[in-house]
Amino acid sequence: MMLSQKDIEIIRALQEGLPLVSRPFQVLAQKVGLSEEELLNKVREFVKQGIIRRFGAAVRHQDLGYISNAMVVWEVPEEKIEEIGRLMASFDEISHCYQRPSRPPEWPYNLFTVIHGQTRDECEKIAARLSRASGITSYRLLFSLAEFKKSSMKYFMEK
């Protein structure tokens, strides 16, 4: 999908956040030289095309009662990855599921999931349950011990 120069300007304006005023789209529209209606239509179009994954709020989940999250990595035979990936994705406890390359011998894991629980123990139990359900017995939980950076990406910034 090719973005026009105008699209890029719109993305730059939108990523600064929706202003906290009665007519926020009007404020942003003025910045990019569109009418309020034109900008609203553009936002709807971006949502439809999936360029905007979500129009809402990015919330720090720690503040909402989820204490522990773990990255759980799985060593899945290449020919089973599609089946297992879909199976893992079907579990409510899993928020993210990606296939990534393995780098044996240091790193044999090729399926990455993120699970959420109230405690470490609960995360471990969820992982054990997923292991039983999938038949994948080679896996590891990596808990985050510290967060050094968490920022929203700014696209198309001047360098």
Binding site: M1, G17, L18, R60, D63
Partner: peptide
Amino acid sequence: GVIRRLGAIFDSRKVGY
């Protein structure tokens, strides 16, 4: 800091990144 961003959350791939 409860809300980190309000509004559009982009799909990095579809934006071309």
